[in-house]
């Protein structure tokens, strides 16, 4: 029974949501919207599980004095500081401390991590330039043509390269993306089908 009931729930909810796509009636829309709302609410409960795992791993590290355990204290301090100020009944997310945590810790860290992307993309471009196979060279050549066309320093250069770049983006690019997307569509449908029919049940774990 431990496995049958979940599989039954998957089958019923999956079948309902699949059929709902073809039923425009307001009643079916209502149930659809309810179910989406429900998954969001369940998600919030799941966050508690996440926080639990977080605290568990951090405290275990501190207790066992494993490498870099000191930083786990920082992580826990950040976590509990934010929770206390955020959930506290003296203002919640509008409170002075919560806003400061957000504006002076989260925002700059987020912006900086995002800006690192520019550096990593430079190193990735460098890596691409050391193409070591025929296929990698094809990728590189196409990348170079597009980069020449869209370089921010000089703007468009010569007519043949510009038109070749536009043509690559409009035609071979479109064809390959279409092939990938059709393949993905089939794969997704197959996987969804396996899940609904209970063939794919890894996510339920063992007994």
């Amino acid at each position: 029974m431990k496995k049958e009931i979940p599989l039954f729930i998957v089958f019923i909810t999956g079948l309902f949501m699949a059929v709902q796509f073809f039923v425009p009636h307001a009643k079916s829309e209502w149930v659809y919207e309810y179910m989406l709302d429900w998954t969001i609410i369940i998600g919030v409960f799941a966050l508690a599980l996440g926080i639990w795992s977080f605290v568990r791993v951090a405290t275990n590290k501190i207790r066992r004095k494993s490498e870099n355990w000191q930083y786990s204290i920082v992580a826990l301090a950040g976590l509990f500081g934010m929770i206390i100020f955020g959930l506290g009944f003296w203002g919640g997310v509008e409170s002075y401390m919560f806003r400061n945590f957000f504006n002076f810790v989260m925002v700059p860290l987020h912006a900086t991590m995002f800006s690192l992307l520019a550096f990593f993309i430079a190193s990735a471009a460098f890596r691409a330039f050391r193409a070591h196979s025929l296929l990698a060279s094809v990728l590189l050549l196409s990348a170079i043509i597009i980069m020449i066309r869209f370089n921010p320093f000089l703007g468009p250069l010569s007519e043949p390269i510009d038109s070749l770049a536009s043509w690559i983006l409009n035609f071979p690019n479109m064809a390959a993306k279409r092939a990938i997307v059709i393949g993905i569509g089939l794969g997704m449908v197959a996987t969804a089908l396996k899940v609904i029919l209970g063939i794919e049940r890894t996510y339920l774990g063992g007994d």
């Binding site: 431990k2 009931i5 979940p6 599989l7 729930i9 998957v10 089958f11 019923i12 909810t13 999956g14 079948l15 309902f16 949501m17 699949a18 059929v19 709902q20 796509f21 073809f22 179910m35 989406l36 429900w38 998954t39 369940i42 409960f45 279409r178 997307v181 059709i182 993905i184 569509g185 089939l186 997704m188 449908v189 996987t191 969804a192 089908l193 899940v195 609904i196 996510y203 339920l204 774990g205």
Partner: peptide, 27 residues
Amino acid sequence: RWALAFIVGTTAGLNLPRFLRSDFIEQ
């Protein structure tokens, strides 16, 4: 697992026909 089954089932059902439309037939 009942809750997991609910979430996975709902979204698998959600994806099944919708991807067949956007990713498949229209392409």
